[in-house]
Amino acid sequence: MKRLSPLTVILTGAGAPGWPDICRSLVENNERTIDIVAVDMDRDVAGYRLVKKHAVVPAGVSPAYIPAMVCLVKKFKAHAIVPLTDPELPALASAASLFKKMGVVLPVARPSAIAIAADKIRTHEFLTNRHRAIPAYRIARTSVEFSVAIAALGYPKTKVCFKPGIAHGSRGFRILDPQATEAATLFAEKAENTRYAMTGERAREILDNCASFPSLLVTEYLPGKEYSVDLLVRKRSVAAVVCRERTRIRFGLTYQGRVIADPKLERLAVDIALRIGLTFNANIQFKKDAAGTYRLLEINPRTSGTIALCRAAGVNLPYLGLKLALGERITAQKPVPGTRNYRYWTHVFT
């Protein structure tokens, strides 16, 4: 088979846990040589040790971020930028035309779609009355609204959840459980477990002591299994879908999971992605309620951290996303159900 032209790709978020697998997914593509430039705001991360070229950039929300990325494109003669972290997505999406003039492709959704998907409150507001997968929810921006919201959703007779509208890696997520005790949390939960429970009274005490009350999405408690759907989306259709069951989760990452064949879950994810206007790589997470119905958890308008499981199942979504951005032909691919992942720690020694 004739090899395609080589590419230089700037891959951001080099300190992210999923970065090494996504880097390998791009490099080990069997079609062309891809030279990776690792980029991060941190000056010393593992990703720098896995490739020959790397660079430090300002934070994605900094006004200096886009000028820095422009300089890197020129320095390394890059053909594409593949972003892996949420904070930089709005800036890159808004600068897509600038990079296009430079001959650089960006597999990133439009700013309007990112604004909806990246904010959990906006996601639920947008999909209310548009999609049946939305769980029961309320929005709280004051202490009084928070008390009214948890009561409306059944607390203290039943558990209730809350999380900030904009947060990353399960930060700020808590389950309100009237039976929760801080002693149990202290001695029974590991420090990295951000999914532990607290009482509504304790939550109010903490929130009232914040400098300003955060905007919170308060939702019904979903006791069922959790699922993740990775998609590759064209403007009006979906090129590939991989459904996964998340059987063990730590730090917001799937430490154990398996690929499943579930047409209903696939249809739900596709419908949501197209309604919001997502394009290229995206990830949508669901959880089952007490009746076994899929309910939306959140949307990631980017490549997910456990997308390597999709590649192991036969669908190399990071590379396919790059090909889609390049305007190259993509052949239909179906994942192998039952493929599993077991995440573990490893090291880079220098």
Rank of each mutant, 00 (worst) to 15 (best):
D42A: 11
D42K: 01
R43S: 09
A46H: 04
A46K: 04
G47D: 03
Y48K: 02
R49P: 00
R49S: 14
L50G: 05
H54G: 15
A55R: 09
A55D: 08
A55L: 04
V57K: 01
P58N: 06
P58G: 11
A59N: 07
G60C: 04
P63Q: 08
P63K: 08
Y65D: 10
Y65S: 10
Y65V: 03
I66S: 08
A68M: 03
V70R: 13
C71P: 02
C71R: 15
L72R: 10
V73N: 00
V73P: 04
K75S: 14
K77Y: 07
A78M: 10
H79P: 05
A80R: 01
A80E: 10
V82N: 03
V82W: 07
P83I: 03
P83Y: 00
P83E: 07
P83D: 11
P83R: 00
T85M: 15
T85A: 12
T85K: 02
T85E: 09
P87A: 04
P87L: 05
P87W: 03
P90D: 14
A95P: 04
A96T: 12
A96V: 13
A96H: 12
L98V: 12
F99G: 01
K100N: 07
K100M: 05
K101E: 15
K101W: 03
M102C: 10
G103E: 05
V104A: 03
V105K: 02
L106G: 10
P107V: 10
V108F: 06
A109S: 15
A109Y: 02
R110G: 07
P111S: 07
P111Q: 09
I114D: 11
I114C: 12
I116P: 10
I116F: 00
A117N: 11
D119V: 04
D119H: 15
D119K: 02
K120W: 12
I121Q: 07
I121T: 11
R122L: 13
R122F: 06
